[in-house]
Design a protein around this nucleic acid. Structure first.
Length: 256
DNA sequence: ATGGTAGCCTTGCTA
């Protein structure tokens, strides 16, 4: 079972690239973030045409998450509060053939020292609380998405410049570790130990061409998913295209 | 050298 995650930075602007990725990579489930699109406006027909169903929550201009899958979603959950009442569209979760999969869009949190950073930390605490409940079910699950966290300095092209950025601040890293230390595994780091491997490159200042990026998109696996993971990698091809997202997909393969 | 780009459908905000 192949599970991929991609912050597309507008599903409408990225539709051709999204359709190409589905056709080329053939994930069983694709988790999207930053769709920037209300559910009623989501380009469902084009995606259905490739054999994928869509579950999504969205809002105009900002945020938005989706699950695209070849099989029907079961036991759909929208929002971390469990009733779809979150003020921002950042979390959607469902089961696919016995594996529970979430698309996570964690708040960016910049600038530090504002209510945006406070909101990020509070949101992370909600994710920790929810993950504790999921772990109690003892099922395989994958929390996939844009965490807006560089876990260590190895995940940043310029750790000094980013030391006080919300993506690297110790308060955010500390809560990310608290999440992982509940018993999750960073799938990418099972298979790749080398530093300076990225999933995001800023549009500005030639960051992509200089390979100056950040590793902020992560697949966090439950113990029973970790037992089954056979591969994980970052697919840099979509980021190299014209009019690309500033993020590129990350994927993993779970043995069925 | 305190810049630069992209998306939204704004007159700036978010990233």
């Amino acid at each position: 079972m192949k599970i991929a995650s991609w912050n597309v930075n507008s599903v409408k602007a990225r539709l051709p690239h999204l359709l190409a990725f589905l056709q080329d990579a053939q994930p069983d489930v694709l988790c999207l973030q930053e769709t920037k699109c209300p559910a009623k406006d989501f380009p469902v027909l084009e995606i259905n045409g490739l054999g994928y169903r869509v579950e999504t929550i969205g809002q105009r201009a900002y945020n938005g998450v989706a699950l695209l899958a070849k099989r029907p979603a079961e036991e759909l959950l929208t929002g971390l509060l469990g009733n779809g009442d979150d003020e921002q569209a950042r979390y959607i979760e469902a089961s696919f053939g016995g594996v529970r999969i979430a698309s996570v869009y964690l708040p960016n949190g910049n600038p530090v020292g504002t209510d945006k950073f406070t909101y990020k930390l509070a949101w992370m605490q909600q994710l920790i609380d929810h993950t504790r409940e999921l772990l109690g079910r003892e099922i395989p699950f994958v929390l996939a998405g844009d965490y807006n966290i560089c876990p260590t300095d190895d995940d940043v092209y310029d750790p000094v410049a980013f030391r006080d950025d919300a993506l690297c601040r110790w308060e955010a890293r500390s809560r990310f570790r608290a999440l992982v230390y509940l018993g999750l595994t960073d799938a990418y780091r099972i298979f790749h130990r080398e530093p300076h491997r990225y999933t995001f490159w800023d549009y500005q200042a030639g960051r992509w061409h200089r390979d100056e990026g950040l590793r902020i998109d992560h697949l966090l696996l439950s113990p029973r998913a970790t037992d089954r993971v056979a591969a994980c990698d970052i697919d840099k091809k979509p980021r190299a295209k014209e009019r690309s997202s500033d993020h590129t997909p990350i994927w993993c393969e779970l043995a069925v």
